[in-house]
Design a protein around this nucleic acid. Structure first.
Lengths: 221, 221, 221, 221
DNA sequence: CATGAATGAGGATTCATTCAT
DNA sequence: CATGAATGAATCCTCATTCAT
């Protein structure tokens, strides 16, 4: 990535007027498109600039360097996803309903905004390695949404009390993420993600539920 | 001139004796280490060569170019993982036991060979994007292992008959993969993956089981 | 990765203002000098850049790659030569006078612009082999100039009607080219090319003339 | 080209037994084929070795380095051509007959041994530039053949006494060389070089003859 | 003598970043 | 603020040459 000497430490100009916000946004949006289409290591500043309709140098008026642009991009992407989830979950009641909604929302995001989904599934995964020492804070927020549903379910008594939320959160995110990725990479996108969400929800909820009989009731049957 | 034309069509020297196999292996192993440590786009041929203790040019005696080296690396990595899984599953009987073993084996792989795991979790995901048109065939094999366990469970009657194996396969792989990644990225690797495997297995199997009561008993409650 | 794909399809910046034209021209001129001095396969982009007083990368702002730079160089060289010939011949009347002028002009070019001459004599000859599939169109124009003089002479009746223009054109070009080369390679450039042109013209014209007596009148003498 | 430090100054092993001569010859012949086919800058030592059926390193047992191999190659090529010409001219009597024979022989060489011809026409021309300070001595011999015919013709009285043999020699060689090249590069090799030789001979001889009327009769007309 | 694996200097090309306009 | 020409470090890859076997 960068690594060159950089005089203006973090002197990224604070955008004050509407014009700046607009242009910074424009660059970020362009970058999202380019990144989703070409992938991380094929994306150049020149590509982004062209896609945004600005000059290469202009990028550096709004972002300190390429790393920083990508960091802000990742945060923007996560923020968009977060907004979507929070809105979808706002009115839901009950852990099970929330979990169902969460799964549906996740897959709907993939269908409706594949660029965002692609970046989350593919590029984000590398971000912590590409950009040394960077830990996307909003990704933690994202995981927290799942965690809270789990906690709520436990408290409601519908989810088994002994599940480890942090672990299950990861498992759920991973499952959804992988399904998203498979869909994104397959050219034949005929198979309905909506139906998949139903099937997954059913299975997941059954797994999460406080076991009615025992740990291994199947042996008895 | 440009020199892009590649004269030596199939000129990769076929290693016939033990000596050669050793060197190609050495390079591949070095590459795995470097790739796991530095990530895809920070890995240079020079890094690999140095790590393998050979000159840069030597790489090209064994691999046509960097892409090809990476492809063979991915296949080697997957092959190693596959071998491990097949061996572990060979003597298991019953879908549930196999699934438990699969989960344990997955997480044990992460603990015992973090480089391999890291590459599968992080780098492999991009391979189909980095390397145009490349579809890792062994990754399909990997998924098939999960799929077969699911099929077996359905036929045994322990797994619900209406689950969609392709979908669930992805979900399971994704869950395990994400958990692996989280562990790999977290510096504090104290939390036991072994215990996690138990917890996951319990939950997953409950979810997979043919529902004793109904499809949506929770709504009734 | 390999990066052979060329993203900027037509990205050679179109120079619009005087400044740019100057720089592209500067590079081309530098390249001519370097090529003439060091020969084709010893000429590196770095040499050209240094000679032009620009950075290596700057070359690629004006030329897609080394091949393309050389192609444009060849065309520039031929264009310069063509301009010279056309100007010199514009006011000449009669095939013989034109032929004399042609020969003189050719050798004057060698004396006055040895770099151009050297490139035509030595490097151009390889261009169709070095650069796959490249056929210098202006070289054809160059030959046409000779061909037209021949045709004109035949129509005037001063040149023998049975001569094969395409063949003789090559012969004349070859003769002049070789003489140029010999002069260029010999360090002692004392011998006058001007006088040589006279001698050649006399001999050539006598050979071209419609034979007054017979095919072998010398036997009769 | 080479330019690396070279310990064994000119320690090329003197081939003493038949075996060595054979192998050196084999390499040289292979090199001629490769050079004619791929051109100078595409020809690698590896190509030559493969074509000769020896290992890369073996080349260096017979030739000090690539430059030296090429020098010997050029001399071999010229020697072959010289042999052909001397043989063809041995029994001819009279300058005109010799000149006709020379032209025919030249073009027959092209038809019968295009590789040799190609190297003389294309590669040799660069040799004096590629290989610094190298002056092919046999090429001088070659020119001398033409020069001697010219001298003979002058003494016989059939060629004009005032022609400058050195100049005309170059002109004749250049003409033949260019015609050869054109034929070699054109894919449609239907046009008969034999006929071309006749036509050229006729014209050339008319031009060379001691002018029957005057030096510049055309001005009078 | 012969081999061919190994070397590493050298060269074309890309692209993040700067800065004069 | 905006531009985009210019820079040059970085990287992949080639190939002449060496040398241990």
């Amino acid at each position: 990535m960068s690594g060159r000497a950089n005089k203006k430490e973090d002197a990224k100009r604070q955008p004050t007027d509407e014009k700046n916000i607009t242009k910074q946004e424009r660059i970020l949006r362009a970058a999202i498109g380019v990144l989703a289409e070409r992938g991380f290591h094929r994306t150049t500043i020149h590509d982004i600039a062209q896609s945004a309709g600005v000059a290469d140098g202009t990028i550096y008026l709004y972002f300190k360097n390429k790393d920083q642009l990508l960091i802000e991009l990742f945060e923007e992407v996560m923020a968009r996803a977060l907004r979507l989830f929070r809105e979808a979950l706002r009115e839901e009641q009950g852990a099970e309903a929330k979990m169902r909604t969460f799964l549906h929302t996740h897959l709907r995001l993939v269908e409706h905004d594949p660029e965002i989904a692609q970046i989350i599934s593919v590029e984000l995964r590398q971000s912590s390695i590409f950009i040394k020492e960077y830990k996307n804070p909003l990704f933690g927020e994202y995981l927290k949404i799942i965690g809270q549903i789990l906690h709520e379910g436990i408290e409601e008594g519908v989810f088994r009390s002994n599940l480890r939320p942090a672990l299950i959160t990861r498992a759920i995110f991973g499952a959804m993420d992988e399904i998203s990725l498979a869909w994104l990479l397959s050219r034949r996108r005929d198979l309905s993600l909506e139906e998949s969400a139903d099937a997954l929800a059913e299975m997941l909820l059954q797994g999460l539920r406080s076991a009615p009989s025992s740990t291994a009731p199947h042996t008895a049957s």
